[in-house]
Design a protein around this nucleic acid. Structure first.
Lengths: 205, 205
DNA sequence: CTCTCGATCATACGTTCGTTTCAATCATAC
DNA sequence: GTATGATTGAAACGAACGTATGATCGAGAG
């Protein structure tokens, strides 16, 4: 007898993959149940609504990432460098094992409405404050608003890379492949850290 | 008698605004015709399909931006600096006058499927090659693949900023407002230019 | 005036969506 | 065995979607 993994997990796995590939609005519950080989009503039975399903999928991937972020920041000691802070912030995202989760995270982070209403308040507000504190300690001469801008820019670097990882090699003849995640972490951290160390722009307060 | 601007332009304006706010799939033709105060059938009469309407909207904003990009790159002379190249690449996007077009451009650039199939081949392939050439001339010691990665990162900085400009101040108590576009250009160029000048990562070929 | 033709109108078509219903099924406890 | 509560199944609901249709409007030409 074939070991059949539970319906709930089958739905989560299929939905994660399809949401990542086609977006949240571009994926119907029927797409998901067909891929998961479960009945249509199973989604509403286990997750009530489509939005709740999305929340469950998001939580399943973001919570371990945030845990790892704190661990890495902790492990870097009391006075981490910019590179160490950025690595702690970015690496757990980029190292996500499940390939299907990579474009999904990109979708989440490039969906402002969903993010600001449902993801940020629940999952990211405490994380970001902690990292802002660490960065301002590592870069005491950088004005706070400029620091926020640059953290914002760094999130853009990370998000764009995850969202486009599946697509970008197609328009560059194979360059910019994201399969080597460790090289990716090094590249993004190096780029963002150099940006953080640039002289503050004149306009900042 | 009130001067009524043509139906076609009313549709383009309303659709641009709504697509920017709610995304392409999150905006129905009925939303658009209601906002534009035109009949539902007017969209199909003037633009045939929703996809064609999207193409028309994209073209209306991207073409002038690309024209300006070439002009700025040209004006920087035969050997532009990294900052000049990045300014030529980013500033025309960020200086777009129509406020509604800013989140729209963010939507386009954060929609890989649409972008790789419809926007990139038609509007951006020649532009990107030109800027890649200029950058590799300004940074001859940087391996080509690393240069592509960093251009990719820079697009992420730009895209994320435009997409989140409307949202970000809400979660930072007003910081990171994009209304001062010139300051924004300076900030992003400074950040990205520093990233480009970082030493090449070990993994690059 | 009448004719013409692009533009606009109300309305409807067929499809797909998220969600609901209720009967059928399964595992477990008694 | 039977009873019970959780899960799955087939089918349908109303709503919203993109698109199509055919009548009507209105300005310019003759």
């Amino acid at each position: 007898m074939i070991e059949r993994v539970g319906t709930k997990i089958r739905i989560l796995d299929a939905a994660e993959k399809l949401f990542g590939m086609n977006g949240f609005e571009g994926t119907s519950l029927r797409d998901i149940t067909t891929a998961a080989e479960v009945n249509l009503a199973a989604i509403n039975y286990h997750f009530q609504t489509k939005d709740s399903l999305i929340d469950a999928i998001v939580a399943r991937r973001i919570e371990p990432v945030n845990k790892k972020r704190f661990e890495l920041l902790e492990a870097a000691g009391p006075n981490p460098t910019v590179e160490e802070i950025l690595t702690a912030f970015m690496a757990p995202v980029m190292r996500v094992k499940v390939d299907a989760a990579v474009p999904l995270i990109g979708r989440i982070l490039s969906n402002p409405e969903m993010f600001v209403e449902r993801v940020f308040p629940k999952h990211l507000a405490p994380v970001s404050q902690r990292f802002i504190d660490a960065l301002s300690k590592a870069l005491p001469e950088l004005p706070p608003s400029e620091l926020l801008w640059r953290l914002h820019f760094s999130v853009g670097v990370m998000t764009h890379t995850m969202l486009w990882g599946r697509i970008y090699p197609k328009i560059t003849n194979g360059v910019c492949d994201i399969s080597d995640r460790e090289a990716l972490v090094e590249r993004t951290v190096q780029f963002a850290a150099a940006g953080f160390r640039a002289p503050a722009s004149k306009g900042s307060d």
